[in-house]
C-alpha cells in the first residue's frame, strides 16, 4: 500500500508516493504557477507513471502550512477529500518541519523560514535529537530582524533553510556572522518525500478536523478582535 504526500503550501508544488520506506516516485516543480490547476494532474500523472490506483493508497500526508493561504487550502482540501472518499487516514505536517528535514543530517540547530511579506517570516527552530527532528522554539509569524536577534543570542551555529534564502542571505550573515550556516540551493526546496517521512511517527488527524496551520489570523478577524478588546477596555 502506498502513501501519497502532497505539498502546495508554498511556491514549490510537490507530490510523492512512498511504499514501505521506499520512494516510488516524486514530482517537484518550483515555479510561480497555479497550484489549483496543476495539483490533480500532477497526482494523476505520478500515479499513472508508477501504475498505482487510488484504491491502493493507504494514507494521505499533506503539508498544512504555514505558507500561502490559498496554496495551503488547495493541498488540504485535496488531501482531506481524497482521504475521506477513499476511507483512509490523513496526516497534516507543518510546512516548516518538512523544510527542516532538508538539514536533518546536521547536528546544528535548523531554522526553516518562509517569507511572509513586510519584513515578516513564518519560522521556527528545529534540532535533530536522536534521529528525530524536534521543535525547540515554537513556530511563529514574526519580524525576521527580531527573530534573528533572538537566534544570534544563542551563540550557536544555525542552518538556515528557505525558498526565499537569496534575498535574506545578507541580513542573516549580518546578524549571525560565522554562526550562520547557509547550504547550497538544492537544500532550500521542501521535498514531498521528506513530508511522507515526517508523517511516519505522527498521530493520524481526524479528517474533518484537520485545518491549516496559518500561524496568523485573517486580517478582518484580527481587526475585529482588536475592536472588541478596545470596547471592553472602554
Amino acid at each position: 500500500m502506498y502513501i501519497l504526500a502532497i505539498d502546495t503550501s508554498n511556491q514549490a508544488l510537490g507530490v510523492a508516493l512512498v511504499k514501505d520506506n521506499e520512494i516510488v516516485g516524486e514530482l517537484v516543480t518550483n515555479i510561480a504557477k497555479n497550484h489549483s490547476v496543476r495539483l490533480m494532474p500532477a497526482i494523476e500523472h505520478l500515479m499513472k507513471e508508477v501504475d498505482v490506483k487510488p484504491e491502493e493508497l493507504s494514507k494521505v500526508v499533506v503539508a498544512k502550512g504555514p505558507g500561502s493561504y490559498t496554496g495551503v487550502r488547495i493541498g488540504l482540501t485535496t488531501a482531506k477529500t481524497l482521504a475521506w472518499s477513499l476511507g483512509i487516514p490523513v496526516v497534516g505536517v507543518s510546512s516548516l518541519e518538512v523544510l527542516a528535514y532538508r538539514a536533518k543530517l546536521s547536528n546544528n540547530l535548523i531554522c526553516p523560514f518562509f517569507d511572509a511579506r513586510r519584513g515578516l517570516v513564518y519560522t521556527g527552530l528545529y534540532e535533530n535529537n536522536h534521529e528525530k527532528l524536534v521543535l525547540v522554539k515554537e513556530e511563529r509569524n514574526t519580524l525576521f530582524a527580531d527573530w534573528l536577534d533572538k537566534l544570534s543570542a544563542l551563540s550557536k551555529p544555525i542552518v538556515f533553510l528557505s525558498p526565499d534564502i537569496q534575498k535574506n542571505k545578507e541580513i542573516i550573515t549580518e546578524k549571525l556572522g560565522s554562526n550562520a550556516v547557509i547550504p547550497e540551493m538544492t537544500y532550500h526546496i521542501p521535498k514531498p518525500s521528506d513530508l511522507a517521512l515526517a508523517a511516519q511517527d505522527k498521530e493520524i488527524d481526524e479528517t474533518h478536523m484537520l485545518t491549516p496551520n496559518y500561524l496568523r489570523l485573517a486580517e478582518a478577524e484580527a481587526n475585529w478582535l482588536k475592536t472588541q478588546k478596545d470596547m471592553q477596555n472602554g
Partner: peptide, 19 residues
C-alpha cells in the same frame, strides 16, 4: 475565487478517487 477553489479542488479529488 478563494471560496470557489475549495469546491473545485474537493470535486476534482472526489472525481479522481471514485473514477
Amino acid at each position: 475565487v478563494g471560496a470557489l477553489l475549495i469546491g473545485v479542488n474537493a470535486a476534482k479529488a472526489l472525481a479522481f478517487a471514485k473514477s
